[in-house]
Write a protein that binds this DNA or RNA. Structure first.
Lengths: 251, 251
DNA sequence: TCCGTAGGTTAACATCGTTAAGTGTTGGAA
DNA sequence: TTCCAACACTTAACGATGTTAACCTACGGA
């Protein structure tokens, strides 16, 4: 009979519940501040029940990051679908990157600013742009280079990719470093700084930055696409509100 | 008699000892991983003795950051002394920033990547470039703007300062995010990426980037000034090796 | 009918930051 | 000289943390 299958399904569902609860809590207060007991309480289990599904707290957050990296990568492909030039793709991708950091700052912090061991994508997935956002960026840079859009002395695809990434990350991270208004510093509005960061990317890498910047300004004035959704990113959207009934939680 | 003065001196020395021990330990393993008991043990005191000198762990690390921010700011003024143009100053300052991040990565992490509450400089010091590195940067940007070196549409000193800072921070931080060699990613050597980041700063902000880049390449090929010292930054250099004899540690 | 296993529980451990209470030294007043 | 209050430290202890051990219990298969 299908009992084994059902059990496996329940096990998977439990994993999802744990991950979703952890994601919400981490997004609220950050990795260190959230306790295993809290995660358990949120889904009405004891803290130790989590250890049936994850080796320890670090493994749990690693798995969480792995999934959110996938989700992150997926956003880019979605965003550039139907764009008319690599330049337009680049602008859209930039908005997606910074928009993600703006919408989910704690997640961005968890994924890109926490000293955790990186959760590198698994073997088969390493070269799939739907899974690894760096691969997406790498391919985009390749397109730009092949199309002759880049400055002629820029010949190293990885160096350019990493240069672009670091500019975007800098803009995103500065926001999290200086989140609260410091009185001694006239901290410019986020959108203004983000736009400036994108201008820097274009200006410092493109052969003809002026044209691209026009495109950027146009996209920006129409509201910065890529900044749409409002809740914590989650892969398991279906059973959102009511957690699935647990199998006899208390004997 | 001078007993009060002596006591005050001893108290100050104890504070320095604690801060130095904490700095070394934080630099080795990061803020969260270091315990108060370890800091105490390192200077042969009990953990609770630290609470006579600092309210709690967070206050301790805040004071540490406050001092290291001062030290950090001081490096810039030192580096640009005697430079012949604002452009040269900018290049040197860029090397100092990235050099600091390269030499003291854990300190950079502590100062710029840890969610701690910022330790903003004290009232009287906020506008002194010897104390606040942002003020130094701000003044440098002002010089560049006044000298007509910046692109004409760049009129907001703070926006430009923050744009430059975020590019440098991005380069420095990417290094700490991806410290270990990821097999799925051809991570370019640090120097190469740092140089590229500085090129981006120049290209995207200067009216005549070509000339400045020549200056940059020259400075870079002569070994990137600003990357000289080798140990953890510390303000109390005198009594380095032997800790001052403690007043009767055990009765 | 019985048993092993899967998946949960509570109790307990070591360690963390931190507080309370106790101890010994010391400079100055009586 | 004697006493006391302040100081700088100690040990003991508290509550909270991540994690492990021991136990429980439902249930599918022999």
């Amino acid at each position: 009979m299908g009992t084994n299958e059902r059990r496996e399904r329940e096990r998977l569902a439990m994993r999802e519940q744990i991950l979703d609860a952890a994601r919400e809590l981490f997004a609220e207060r950050g990795y260190e501040a959230v306790t295993m007991r809290e995660i358990g309480k949120r889904i009405e289990y004891s803290a130790t029940a989590l250890y049936n599904h994850f080796e320890d707290k670090e493994t749990l957050v690693r798995e969480l990051c792995r999934r959110d990296f996938r989700d992150f990568a997926g956003r880019f492909l979605e965003a550039v679908a139907g764009s008319k030039s690599p330049i337009e793709s680049a602008c859209r991708a930039g908005f997606v990157y910074l928009g993600f950091a703006e919408q989910f700052p704690q997640h961005y912090r968890l994924m890109f600013m926490t000293p955790l061991p990186e959760a590198p994508p698994e073997a088969g997935e390493r070269e799939d742009p739907r899974v690894n956002a760096y691969v997406f960026l790498h391919q985009l840079v390749q397109q730009l280079m092949a199309g002759g859009y880049l400055r002629p002395e820029l010949t190293d695809v990885d160096l350019v990719s990493q240069s672009i990434w670091s500019i975007l990350h800098g803009a995103a991270a500065l926001d999290l470093i200086l989140n609260k208004q410091e009185p001694w510093l006239d901290f410019k509005p986020r959108r203004e700084r983000f736009l400036q960061a994108l201008r820097c990317v274009l200006r410092s890498h493109l052969r003809d930055p002026e044209a691209a910047e026009k495109e950027l300004e146009g996209a920006a004035s129409s509201g910065m696409p890529g900044l749409v959704e409002a809740e914590v990113p989650t892969k398991t959207k279906a059973k959102a509100k009511k957690p699935t009934a647990k199998p006899k939680p208390k004997g």
